[in-house]
Design a protein around this nucleic acid. Structure first.
Lengths: 255, 255
DNA sequence: CTTGACTCTACCCTTACGTCATAGCCTATA
DNA sequence: TATAGGCTATGACGTAAGGGTAGAGTCAAG
Protein backbone atom coordinates (compact mmCIF):
# COMPACT_ATOMS: atom_id res chain seq x y z
CA UNK A 1 0.00 0.00 0.00
CA UNK A 2 1.79 3.09 -1.25
CA UNK A 3 1.38 6.01 1.04
CA UNK A 4 2.68 8.93 -0.91
CA UNK A 5 0.89 10.48 -3.84
CA UNK A 6 1.65 13.48 -5.99
CA UNK A 7 -1.20 15.71 -7.12
CA UNK A 8 -1.45 13.96 -10.44
CA UNK A 9 -1.37 10.51 -8.91
CA UNK A 10 -4.04 11.38 -6.39
CA UNK A 11 -6.13 13.06 -9.04
CA UNK A 12 -6.02 9.92 -11.20
CA UNK A 13 -6.79 7.72 -8.21
CA UNK A 14 -9.82 9.70 -7.20
CA UNK A 15 -10.93 10.83 -10.63
CA UNK A 16 -10.71 14.56 -10.04
CA UNK A 17 -8.60 17.17 -11.76
CA UNK A 18 -5.33 18.49 -10.44
CA UNK A 19 -6.86 21.95 -10.40
CA UNK A 20 -9.62 20.67 -8.15
CA UNK A 21 -7.05 19.41 -5.68
CA UNK A 22 -5.37 22.83 -5.79
CA UNK A 23 -8.72 24.40 -4.99
CA UNK A 24 -9.47 22.01 -2.16
CA UNK A 25 -6.05 22.75 -0.72
CA UNK A 26 -6.49 26.49 -0.91
CA UNK A 27 -9.92 26.40 0.68
CA UNK A 28 -8.75 24.07 3.44
CA UNK A 29 -10.93 21.17 2.39
CA UNK A 30 -8.03 18.83 1.71
CA UNK A 31 -4.56 19.91 2.71
CA UNK A 32 -1.64 17.79 1.49
CA UNK A 33 0.20 15.81 4.12
CA UNK A 34 3.36 17.75 3.30
CA UNK A 35 5.19 19.75 0.67
CA UNK A 36 8.53 18.87 -0.87
CA UNK A 37 11.37 21.37 -0.76
CA UNK A 38 10.23 22.51 -4.19
CA UNK A 39 6.72 23.08 -2.92
CA UNK A 40 5.18 20.01 -4.52
CA UNK A 41 2.13 18.67 -2.74
CA UNK A 42 2.36 15.24 -1.18
CA UNK A 43 -0.68 13.32 -0.07
CA UNK A 44 -0.82 10.26 2.17
CA UNK A 45 -3.33 7.55 2.73
CA UNK A 46 -5.37 9.59 5.18
CA UNK A 47 -5.75 12.27 2.54
CA UNK A 48 -7.00 9.73 0.05
CA UNK A 49 -9.62 8.61 2.53
CA UNK A 50 -10.66 12.15 3.27
CA UNK A 51 -10.89 12.91 -0.42
CA UNK A 52 -13.18 9.96 -0.84
CA UNK A 53 -15.41 11.29 1.90
CA UNK A 54 -15.42 14.67 0.21
CA UNK A 55 -16.40 13.09 -3.08
CA UNK A 56 -19.21 11.19 -1.39
CA UNK A 57 -20.80 14.38 -0.15
CA UNK A 58 -20.03 16.12 -3.41
CA UNK A 59 -21.91 13.38 -5.21
CA UNK A 60 -24.84 14.24 -2.99
CA UNK A 61 -24.61 17.79 -4.34
CA UNK A 62 -23.51 19.29 -1.05
CA UNK A 63 -21.80 22.66 -1.43
CA UNK A 64 -18.10 22.38 -0.64
CA UNK A 65 -18.51 24.81 2.22
CA UNK A 66 -20.96 22.42 3.88
CA UNK A 67 -18.66 19.48 3.28
CA UNK A 68 -15.93 21.39 5.04
CA UNK A 69 -18.22 21.92 8.01
CA UNK A 70 -19.19 18.26 8.08
CA UNK A 71 -15.64 17.00 7.98
CA UNK A 72 -14.15 19.66 10.19
CA UNK A 73 -16.70 19.63 12.96
CA UNK A 74 -17.35 16.20 14.39
CA UNK A 75 -20.28 17.65 16.32
CA UNK A 76 -21.92 18.66 13.05
CA UNK A 77 -25.45 17.36 12.87
CA UNK A 78 -25.05 15.14 9.87
CA UNK A 79 -28.48 13.63 10.21
CA UNK A 80 -30.19 16.98 10.08
CA UNK A 81 -28.02 18.08 7.19
CA UNK A 82 -28.90 14.96 5.25
CA UNK A 83 -32.58 15.33 5.97
CA UNK A 84 -32.59 18.95 4.94
CA UNK A 85 -30.71 18.05 1.83
CA UNK A 86 -33.14 15.27 1.10
CA UNK A 87 -36.01 17.70 1.31
CA UNK A 88 -34.27 20.12 -1.03
CA UNK A 89 -33.65 17.34 -3.50
CA UNK A 90 -37.29 16.28 -3.42
CA UNK A 91 -38.36 19.87 -4.02
CA UNK A 92 -36.03 19.99 -6.98
CA UNK A 93 -37.57 16.78 -8.24
CA UNK A 94 -41.06 18.21 -7.91
CA UNK A 95 -40.00 21.26 -9.80
CA UNK A 96 -38.56 19.11 -12.56
CA UNK A 97 -41.82 17.19 -12.75
CA UNK A 98 -43.66 20.45 -13.25
CA UNK A 99 -41.20 21.54 -15.90
CA UNK A 100 -41.48 18.27 -17.78
CA UNK A 101 -45.25 18.40 -17.78
CA UNK A 102 -45.15 21.99 -19.00
CA UNK A 103 -42.84 20.94 -21.78
CA UNK A 104 -45.13 18.06 -22.61
CA UNK A 105 -48.08 20.39 -22.91
CA UNK A 106 -46.04 22.74 -25.07
CA UNK A 107 -44.98 19.84 -27.23
CA UNK A 108 -48.58 18.72 -27.70
CA UNK A 109 -49.53 22.20 -28.80
CA UNK A 110 -46.49 22.26 -31.00
CA UNK A 111 -47.37 18.93 -32.55
CA UNK A 112 -50.78 20.22 -33.48
CA UNK A 113 -49.04 22.99 -35.29
CA UNK A 114 -46.36 20.66 -36.41
CA UNK A 115 -46.36 21.38 -40.07
CA UNK A 116 -47.39 24.96 -39.81
CA UNK A 117 -45.31 26.82 -42.32
CA UNK A 118 -45.36 30.55 -42.57
CA UNK A 119 -48.01 30.13 -45.26
CA UNK A 120 -50.18 28.10 -42.90
CA UNK A 121 -50.33 31.02 -40.55
CA UNK A 122 -52.26 32.94 -43.17
CA UNK A 123 -54.66 30.30 -44.33
CA UNK A 124 -57.07 31.56 -46.93
CA UNK A 125 -54.54 33.92 -48.42
CA UNK A 126 -53.06 32.59 -51.68
CA UNK A 127 -49.67 31.07 -50.94
CA UNK A 128 -47.90 32.92 -53.68
CA UNK A 129 -49.05 36.22 -52.21
CA UNK A 130 -47.98 35.49 -48.65
CA UNK A 131 -44.32 36.21 -49.21
CA UNK A 132 -45.04 39.55 -50.84
CA UNK A 133 -47.55 40.56 -48.17
CA UNK A 134 -45.13 39.48 -45.50
CA UNK A 135 -42.31 41.58 -46.90
CA UNK A 136 -44.63 44.50 -47.18
CA UNK A 137 -45.73 44.06 -43.59
CA UNK A 138 -42.13 43.86 -42.42
CA UNK A 139 -41.25 47.05 -44.23
CA UNK A 140 -44.31 48.72 -42.77
CA UNK A 141 -44.29 47.43 -39.19
CA UNK A 142 -40.76 46.26 -38.70
CA UNK A 143 -39.29 42.80 -38.94
CA UNK A 144 -39.47 42.26 -35.21
CA UNK A 145 -43.15 43.01 -35.03
CA UNK A 146 -43.92 40.55 -37.76
CA UNK A 147 -41.76 37.79 -36.29
CA UNK A 148 -43.18 38.29 -32.85
CA UNK A 149 -46.70 38.29 -34.23
CA UNK A 150 -46.01 35.07 -36.06
CA UNK A 151 -44.67 33.55 -32.87
CA UNK A 152 -47.97 34.41 -31.25
CA UNK A 153 -49.85 32.86 -34.12
CA UNK A 154 -47.80 29.74 -33.73
CA UNK A 155 -48.87 29.53 -30.12
CA UNK A 156 -52.40 28.70 -31.22
CA UNK A 157 -53.30 25.14 -31.90
CA UNK A 158 -54.10 24.09 -35.42
CA UNK A 159 -57.77 23.91 -34.46
CA UNK A 160 -57.89 27.38 -33.03
CA UNK A 161 -56.01 28.70 -36.01
CA UNK A 162 -58.42 27.10 -38.43
CA UNK A 163 -61.51 28.35 -36.66
CA UNK A 164 -60.06 31.83 -36.42
CA UNK A 165 -59.25 31.91 -40.09
CA UNK A 166 -62.58 30.39 -41.10
CA UNK A 167 -64.43 32.90 -39.05
CA UNK A 168 -62.53 35.78 -40.53
CA UNK A 169 -63.10 34.42 -44.02
CA UNK A 170 -66.75 34.03 -43.28
CA UNK A 171 -66.99 37.58 -42.06
CA UNK A 172 -65.24 38.76 -45.16
CA UNK A 173 -67.68 36.95 -47.37
CA UNK A 174 -70.65 38.33 -45.51
CA UNK A 175 -69.13 41.78 -45.75
CA UNK A 176 -68.80 41.62 -49.49
CA UNK A 177 -72.32 40.27 -49.81
CA UNK A 178 -73.58 43.12 -47.70
CA UNK A 179 -71.73 45.53 -49.90
CA UNK A 180 -73.19 43.85 -52.95
CA UNK A 181 -69.86 42.78 -54.38
CA UNK A 182 -68.65 39.45 -55.67
CA UNK A 183 -66.62 37.74 -52.92
CA UNK A 184 -64.02 36.79 -55.52
CA UNK A 185 -63.71 40.27 -56.98
CA UNK A 186 -60.47 42.21 -56.81
CA UNK A 187 -61.62 44.66 -54.12
CA UNK A 188 -62.66 41.85 -51.80
CA UNK A 189 -59.42 40.06 -52.44
CA UNK A 190 -57.76 43.28 -51.39
CA UNK A 191 -59.76 43.11 -48.21
CA UNK A 192 -58.30 39.71 -47.66
CA UNK A 193 -54.83 41.06 -48.20
CA UNK A 194 -55.54 43.66 -45.55
CA UNK A 195 -56.69 40.92 -43.28
CA UNK A 196 -53.14 39.68 -43.29
CA UNK A 197 -52.04 42.81 -41.56
CA UNK A 198 -54.86 42.65 -39.10
CA UNK A 199 -53.87 39.22 -38.04
CA UNK A 200 -50.36 40.45 -37.55
CA UNK A 201 -51.33 43.46 -35.53
CA UNK A 202 -53.74 41.59 -33.37
CA UNK A 203 -51.48 38.67 -32.70
CA UNK A 204 -48.60 41.00 -32.01
CA UNK A 205 -50.65 42.46 -29.20
CA UNK A 206 -53.51 40.52 -27.79
CA UNK A 207 -55.60 38.32 -29.96
CA UNK A 208 -58.31 38.27 -27.32
CA UNK A 209 -59.33 41.81 -28.03
CA UNK A 210 -62.31 40.38 -29.88
CA UNK A 211 -64.09 40.90 -33.09
CA UNK A 212 -65.10 44.47 -32.40
CA UNK A 213 -61.54 45.61 -32.11
CA UNK A 214 -60.62 43.57 -35.11
CA UNK A 215 -62.92 45.61 -37.25
CA UNK A 216 -61.94 48.88 -35.69
CA UNK A 217 -58.40 48.06 -36.66
CA UNK A 218 -59.52 46.99 -40.09
CA UNK A 219 -61.24 50.27 -40.53
CA UNK A 220 -58.22 52.19 -39.37
CA UNK A 221 -56.02 50.36 -41.80
CA UNK A 222 -58.30 51.14 -44.68
CA UNK A 223 -58.28 54.75 -43.68
CA UNK A 224 -54.53 54.92 -43.36
CA UNK A 225 -53.71 53.12 -46.57
CA UNK A 226 -55.03 54.98 -49.55
CA UNK A 227 -54.21 52.24 -52.00
CA UNK A 228 -57.48 50.67 -50.99
CA UNK A 229 -59.61 53.70 -51.46
CA UNK A 230 -61.97 52.41 -54.06
CA UNK A 231 -63.86 49.42 -52.86
CA UNK A 232 -67.15 49.14 -54.59
CA UNK A 233 -66.80 52.81 -55.40
CA UNK A 234 -66.73 54.05 -51.81
CA UNK A 235 -64.09 56.38 -50.50
CA UNK A 236 -61.96 54.81 -47.82
CA UNK A 237 -63.28 56.81 -44.90
CA UNK A 238 -66.80 55.99 -45.74
CA UNK A 239 -65.89 52.39 -46.28
CA UNK A 240 -64.27 52.25 -42.91
CA UNK A 241 -67.26 53.76 -41.20
CA UNK A 242 -69.56 51.47 -43.11
CA UNK A 243 -67.55 48.48 -42.07
CA UNK A 244 -67.58 49.49 -38.47
CA UNK A 245 -71.32 49.90 -38.54
CA UNK A 246 -71.82 46.69 -40.46
CA UNK A 247 -69.68 44.79 -38.08
CA UNK A 248 -71.31 46.23 -35.03
CA UNK A 249 -74.52 44.95 -36.51
CA UNK A 250 -72.95 41.62 -37.36
CA UNK A 251 -71.60 41.23 -33.88
CA UNK A 252 -74.91 42.15 -32.31
CA UNK A 253 -76.51 39.32 -34.31
CA UNK A 254 -74.14 36.77 -32.85
CA UNK A 255 -75.74 34.50 -30.24
CA UNK B 1 -53.44 49.89 -21.39
CA UNK B 2 -50.33 51.78 -20.39
CA UNK B 3 -47.56 51.31 -22.83
CA UNK B 4 -44.54 52.81 -21.15
CA UNK B 5 -42.71 51.24 -18.27
CA UNK B 6 -39.59 52.22 -16.38
CA UNK B 7 -37.17 49.50 -15.28
CA UNK B 8 -38.66 49.38 -11.85
CA UNK B 9 -42.21 49.25 -13.09
CA UNK B 10 -41.44 46.49 -15.53
CA UNK B 11 -39.50 44.60 -12.91
CA UNK B 12 -42.46 44.72 -10.54
CA UNK B 13 -44.83 43.73 -13.29
CA UNK B 14 -42.83 40.71 -14.28
CA UNK B 15 -41.43 39.83 -10.90
CA UNK B 16 -37.78 40.14 -11.76
CA UNK B 17 -35.12 42.44 -10.35
CA UNK B 18 -34.01 45.67 -11.94
CA UNK B 19 -30.56 44.16 -12.05
CA UNK B 20 -31.86 41.31 -14.15
CA UNK B 21 -33.35 43.73 -16.65
CA UNK B 22 -30.01 45.51 -16.87
CA UNK B 23 -28.40 42.18 -17.59
CA UNK B 24 -30.94 41.20 -20.23
CA UNK B 25 -30.44 44.55 -21.90
CA UNK B 26 -26.68 44.23 -21.95
CA UNK B 27 -26.77 40.72 -23.35
CA UNK B 28 -29.32 41.67 -26.01
CA UNK B 29 -32.07 39.46 -24.64
CA UNK B 30 -34.44 42.31 -23.92
CA UNK B 31 -33.59 45.77 -25.21
CA UNK B 32 -35.71 48.65 -24.00
CA UNK B 33 -37.97 50.27 -26.56
CA UNK B 34 -36.09 53.52 -26.08
CA UNK B 35 -34.00 55.60 -23.74
CA UNK B 36 -34.96 58.97 -22.31
CA UNK B 37 -32.64 61.92 -22.75
CA UNK B 38 -31.18 61.04 -19.37
CA UNK B 39 -30.51 57.48 -20.48
CA UNK B 40 -33.38 55.90 -18.57
CA UNK B 41 -34.68 52.69 -20.07
CA UNK B 42 -38.23 52.71 -21.37
CA UNK B 43 -40.10 49.56 -22.15
CA UNK B 44 -43.27 49.20 -24.14
CA UNK B 45 -45.95 46.59 -24.35
CA UNK B 46 -44.01 44.52 -26.86
CA UNK B 47 -41.14 44.34 -24.40
CA UNK B 48 -43.44 43.15 -21.65
CA UNK B 49 -44.64 40.37 -23.90
CA UNK B 50 -41.12 39.43 -24.85
CA UNK B 51 -40.09 39.41 -21.22
CA UNK B 52 -42.93 37.06 -20.46
CA UNK B 53 -41.72 34.73 -23.16
CA UNK B 54 -38.23 34.92 -21.73
CA UNK B 55 -39.51 34.06 -18.30
CA UNK B 56 -41.44 31.14 -19.67
CA UNK B 57 -38.32 29.56 -21.08
CA UNK B 58 -36.34 30.56 -18.03
CA UNK B 59 -38.87 28.73 -15.89
CA UNK B 60 -38.09 25.70 -17.99
CA UNK B 61 -34.46 26.12 -16.96
CA UNK B 62 -33.27 27.04 -20.40
CA UNK B 63 -29.95 28.89 -20.40
CA UNK B 64 -30.42 32.52 -21.35
CA UNK B 65 -28.20 32.04 -24.36
CA UNK B 66 -30.62 29.41 -25.70
CA UNK B 67 -33.57 31.66 -24.99
CA UNK B 68 -31.89 34.34 -27.04
CA UNK B 69 -31.52 31.90 -29.92
CA UNK B 70 -35.13 30.80 -29.64
CA UNK B 71 -36.51 34.32 -29.66
CA UNK B 72 -34.07 35.75 -32.16
CA UNK B 73 -34.16 33.03 -34.77
CA UNK B 74 -37.67 32.16 -35.98
CA UNK B 75 -36.21 29.14 -37.77
CA UNK B 76 -34.97 27.75 -34.46
CA UNK B 77 -36.18 24.23 -33.96
CA UNK B 78 -38.16 24.76 -30.80
CA UNK B 79 -39.58 21.27 -30.82
CA UNK B 80 -36.19 19.66 -30.86
CA UNK B 81 -34.92 22.02 -28.21
CA UNK B 82 -37.85 21.20 -25.97
CA UNK B 83 -37.44 17.49 -26.49
CA UNK B 84 -33.73 17.63 -25.77
CA UNK B 85 -34.43 19.69 -22.73
CA UNK B 86 -37.05 17.25 -21.59
CA UNK B 87 -34.54 14.44 -21.80
CA UNK B 88 -32.00 16.43 -19.83
CA UNK B 89 -34.58 17.14 -17.15
CA UNK B 90 -35.48 13.47 -16.87
CA UNK B 91 -31.82 12.59 -16.52
CA UNK B 92 -31.55 15.15 -13.76
CA UNK B 93 -34.56 13.60 -12.10
CA UNK B 94 -32.99 10.17 -12.27
CA UNK B 95 -29.85 11.49 -10.72
CA UNK B 96 -31.84 13.09 -7.91
CA UNK B 97 -33.61 9.78 -7.33
CA UNK B 98 -30.26 8.10 -6.92
CA UNK B 99 -29.08 10.80 -4.56
CA UNK B 100 -32.20 10.58 -2.44
CA UNK B 101 -31.96 6.83 -2.13
CA UNK B 102 -28.31 7.14 -1.16
CA UNK B 103 -29.27 9.65 1.49
CA UNK B 104 -32.04 7.36 2.67
CA UNK B 105 -29.61 4.50 3.09
CA UNK B 106 -27.21 6.74 4.94
CA UNK B 107 -30.03 7.95 7.16
CA UNK B 108 -31.09 4.39 8.01
CA UNK B 109 -27.55 3.59 9.03
CA UNK B 110 -27.41 6.81 10.95
CA UNK B 111 -30.67 6.05 12.73
CA UNK B 112 -29.38 2.71 13.89
CA UNK B 113 -26.51 4.55 15.47
CA UNK B 114 -28.77 7.26 16.64
CA UNK B 115 -27.91 7.28 20.28
CA UNK B 116 -24.38 6.08 19.92
CA UNK B 117 -22.28 8.14 22.27
CA UNK B 118 -18.54 8.01 22.24
CA UNK B 119 -18.77 5.42 25.01
CA UNK B 120 -21.02 3.23 22.90
CA UNK B 121 -18.33 3.02 20.29
CA UNK B 122 -16.20 1.08 22.72
CA UNK B 123 -18.72 -1.30 24.19
CA UNK B 124 -17.21 -3.70 26.66
CA UNK B 125 -14.71 -1.18 27.89
CA UNK B 126 -15.68 0.36 31.26
CA UNK B 127 -17.22 3.77 30.60
CA UNK B 128 -15.09 5.57 33.14
CA UNK B 129 -11.97 4.33 31.34
CA UNK B 130 -13.03 5.38 27.88
CA UNK B 131 -12.22 9.05 28.32
CA UNK B 132 -8.73 8.30 29.60
CA UNK B 133 -8.01 5.76 26.87
CA UNK B 134 -9.33 8.16 24.29
CA UNK B 135 -7.10 10.98 25.41
CA UNK B 136 -4.15 8.68 25.43
CA UNK B 137 -4.95 7.52 21.92
CA UNK B 138 -5.26 11.12 20.73
CA UNK B 139 -1.90 11.99 22.19
CA UNK B 140 -0.39 8.92 20.60
CA UNK B 141 -2.03 8.88 17.18
CA UNK B 142 -3.24 12.42 16.73
CA UNK B 143 -6.65 13.91 17.33
CA UNK B 144 -7.56 13.73 13.66
CA UNK B 145 -6.85 10.03 13.46
CA UNK B 146 -9.05 9.31 16.43
CA UNK B 147 -11.91 11.48 15.21
CA UNK B 148 -11.76 9.99 11.75
CA UNK B 149 -11.64 6.49 13.21
CA UNK B 150 -14.67 7.24 15.34
CA UNK B 151 -16.50 8.55 12.30
CA UNK B 152 -15.83 5.22 10.64
CA UNK B 153 -17.07 3.39 13.70
CA UNK B 154 -20.22 5.45 13.60
CA UNK B 155 -20.80 4.32 10.04
CA UNK B 156 -21.55 0.82 11.29
CA UNK B 157 -25.05 0.00 12.37
CA UNK B 158 -25.72 -0.71 15.99
CA UNK B 159 -26.09 -4.39 15.15
CA UNK B 160 -22.78 -4.59 13.35
CA UNK B 161 -21.11 -2.71 16.14
CA UNK B 162 -22.52 -5.04 18.76
CA UNK B 163 -21.51 -8.18 16.95
CA UNK B 164 -18.04 -6.79 16.29
CA UNK B 165 -17.54 -5.92 19.93
CA UNK B 166 -19.00 -9.19 21.15
CA UNK B 167 -16.78 -11.12 18.87
CA UNK B 168 -13.71 -9.27 20.00
CA UNK B 169 -14.66 -9.76 23.63
CA UNK B 170 -15.25 -13.42 22.99
CA UNK B 171 -11.87 -13.76 21.36
CA UNK B 172 -10.32 -12.00 24.29
CA UNK B 173 -11.90 -14.42 26.71
CA UNK B 174 -10.78 -17.42 24.71
CA UNK B 175 -7.32 -15.94 24.55
CA UNK B 176 -7.03 -15.59 28.30
CA UNK B 177 -8.39 -19.08 28.80
CA UNK B 178 -5.81 -20.40 26.37
CA UNK B 179 -3.16 -18.53 28.26
CA UNK B 180 -4.47 -19.98 31.51
CA UNK B 181 -5.33 -16.62 33.04
CA UNK B 182 -8.45 -15.36 34.69
CA UNK B 183 -10.45 -13.32 32.16
CA UNK B 184 -11.06 -10.70 34.82
CA UNK B 185 -7.42 -10.45 35.86
CA UNK B 186 -5.49 -7.22 35.43
CA UNK B 187 -3.35 -8.41 32.51
CA UNK B 188 -6.40 -9.44 30.51
CA UNK B 189 -8.08 -6.16 31.30
CA UNK B 190 -5.01 -4.51 29.90
CA UNK B 191 -5.51 -6.54 26.76
CA UNK B 192 -8.96 -5.09 26.59
CA UNK B 193 -7.55 -1.59 26.97
CA UNK B 194 -5.22 -2.28 24.08
CA UNK B 195 -8.18 -3.45 22.08
CA UNK B 196 -9.41 0.11 22.22
CA UNK B 197 -6.46 1.23 20.19
CA UNK B 198 -6.86 -1.60 17.77
CA UNK B 199 -10.38 -0.63 17.04
CA UNK B 200 -9.25 2.89 16.41
CA UNK B 201 -6.39 1.95 14.16
CA UNK B 202 -8.40 -0.52 12.16
CA UNK B 203 -11.39 1.70 11.70
CA UNK B 204 -9.13 4.61 10.80
CA UNK B 205 -7.93 2.49 7.91
CA UNK B 206 -10.08 -0.35 6.76
CA UNK B 207 -12.09 -2.38 9.19
CA UNK B 208 -12.51 -5.10 6.59
CA UNK B 209 -8.93 -6.12 6.85
CA UNK B 210 -10.15 -9.06 8.87
CA UNK B 211 -9.41 -10.82 12.06
CA UNK B 212 -5.97 -11.91 11.04
CA UNK B 213 -4.86 -8.32 10.54
CA UNK B 214 -6.53 -7.38 13.78
CA UNK B 215 -4.31 -9.70 15.69
CA UNK B 216 -1.21 -8.83 13.73
CA UNK B 217 -1.85 -5.24 14.73
CA UNK B 218 -2.53 -6.30 18.30
CA UNK B 219 0.78 -8.12 18.36
CA UNK B 220 2.59 -5.11 16.94
CA UNK B 221 1.06 -2.88 19.55
CA UNK B 222 2.18 -5.13 22.35
CA UNK B 223 5.66 -5.13 20.88
CA UNK B 224 5.78 -1.37 20.53
CA UNK B 225 4.38 -0.52 23.90
CA UNK B 226 6.54 -1.82 26.69
CA UNK B 227 4.07 -0.91 29.42
CA UNK B 228 2.37 -4.19 28.66
CA UNK B 229 5.45 -6.34 28.80
CA UNK B 230 4.43 -8.56 31.64
CA UNK B 231 1.28 -10.39 30.75
CA UNK B 232 1.14 -13.70 32.44
CA UNK B 233 4.88 -13.35 32.93
CA UNK B 234 5.77 -13.33 29.24
CA UNK B 235 7.93 -10.67 27.66
CA UNK B 236 6.04 -8.57 25.15
CA UNK B 237 7.66 -9.97 22.02
CA UNK B 238 6.91 -13.48 23.04
CA UNK B 239 3.40 -12.52 23.96
CA UNK B 240 2.93 -10.95 20.59
CA UNK B 241 4.22 -14.00 18.78
CA UNK B 242 2.09 -16.20 20.94
CA UNK B 243 -0.96 -14.18 20.20
CA UNK B 244 -0.33 -14.26 16.51
CA UNK B 245 0.07 -18.00 16.59
CA UNK B 246 -2.93 -18.47 18.85
CA UNK B 247 -5.07 -16.36 16.62
CA UNK B 248 -3.94 -18.04 13.46
CA UNK B 249 -5.05 -21.24 15.13
CA UNK B 250 -8.29 -19.70 16.33
CA UNK B 251 -9.06 -18.38 12.88
CA UNK B 252 -8.28 -21.71 11.28
CA UNK B 253 -10.84 -23.31 13.60
CA UNK B 254 -13.61 -20.98 12.44
CA UNK B 255 -16.15 -22.65 10.15
C1' DC C 1 -34.78 74.59 -3.22
C1' DT C 2 -34.45 70.56 -0.97
C1' DT C 3 -35.74 65.89 -0.17
C1' DG C 4 -36.52 61.26 -1.36
C1' DA C 5 -37.17 58.03 -4.81
C1' DC C 6 -35.38 56.55 -8.88
C1' DT C 7 -31.82 55.57 -12.41
C1' DC C 8 -27.34 55.12 -14.69
C1' DT C 9 -22.69 52.81 -15.18
C1' DA C 10 -18.81 50.48 -13.35
C1' DC C 11 -16.79 47.44 -10.46
C1' DC C 12 -16.32 43.37 -7.53
C1' DC C 13 -18.44 38.95 -5.45
C1' DT C 14 -20.56 34.36 -5.70
C1' DT C 15 -19.67 28.40 -7.09
C1' DA C 16 -16.83 24.94 -8.54
C1' DC C 17 -14.23 24.54 -11.25
C1' DG C 18 -11.51 24.96 -16.42
C1' DT C 19 -8.01 27.22 -19.22
C1' DC C 20 -3.99 29.55 -20.11
C1' DA C 21 0.53 31.73 -19.26
C1' DT C 22 4.76 31.75 -17.03
C1' DA C 23 8.07 29.90 -14.37
C1' DG C 24 10.38 26.37 -11.77
C1' DC C 25 11.56 21.34 -10.94
C1' DC C 26 12.96 16.60 -12.08
C1' DT C 27 14.89 12.94 -14.60
C1' DA C 28 16.37 10.19 -18.57
C1' DT C 29 18.97 10.18 -22.50
C1' DA C 30 22.55 11.80 -25.96
C1' DT D 1 26.60 18.12 -19.00
C1' DA D 2 23.01 19.86 -21.75
C1' DT D 3 18.59 19.42 -23.06
C1' DA D 4 14.01 17.64 -23.93
C1' DG D 5 9.76 16.31 -22.08
C1' DG D 6 6.93 15.75 -18.25
C1' DC D 7 5.40 17.36 -13.90
C1' DT D 8 4.36 21.13 -10.73
C1' DA D 9 3.16 25.82 -8.78
C1' DT D 10 0.93 30.15 -8.98
C1' DG D 11 -1.90 33.82 -10.71
C1' DA D 12 -5.10 35.74 -13.86
C1' DC D 13 -9.12 35.29 -16.27
C1' DG D 14 -13.68 33.09 -17.79
C1' DT D 15 -18.00 30.68 -16.96
C1' DA D 16 -24.01 31.51 -15.59
C1' DA D 17 -27.06 34.30 -13.72
C1' DG D 18 -27.23 37.46 -11.37
C1' DG D 19 -26.41 40.27 -6.29
C1' DG D 20 -24.32 44.23 -3.96
C1' DT D 21 -22.61 48.63 -3.68
C1' DA D 22 -20.56 53.21 -4.97
C1' DG D 23 -20.74 57.55 -7.04
C1' DA D 24 -23.13 60.38 -9.84
C1' DG D 25 -27.06 62.07 -12.22
C1' DT D 26 -32.47 62.69 -12.70
C1' DC D 27 -37.17 63.56 -11.53
C1' DA D 28 -41.32 65.07 -9.10
C1' DA D 29 -43.44 66.95 -5.00
C1' DG D 30 -43.70 69.99 -1.19
Amino acid sequence: MKDNYSVKQLSRLAGVSVRTLHLYDRMGLLKPLARTAAGYRQYGHQELLRLQQILFYRELDFPLKDILDILEDPAFDLKEALEGHRKALLARKDRIDTLVSTIDKTLVTLKNNDMLQVEDLYEGIPNEKVEAYRNEAMAKWGKDTVLSAEATLRSFSREEMKSLQTELLDINTRLSVMMGTDPTSAPVQQCIARRFEIILLLSGGKIEMGKLEYFRKLGELYVQDNRYTPVNGMPSMELALFMKAAMDYYIAQQP
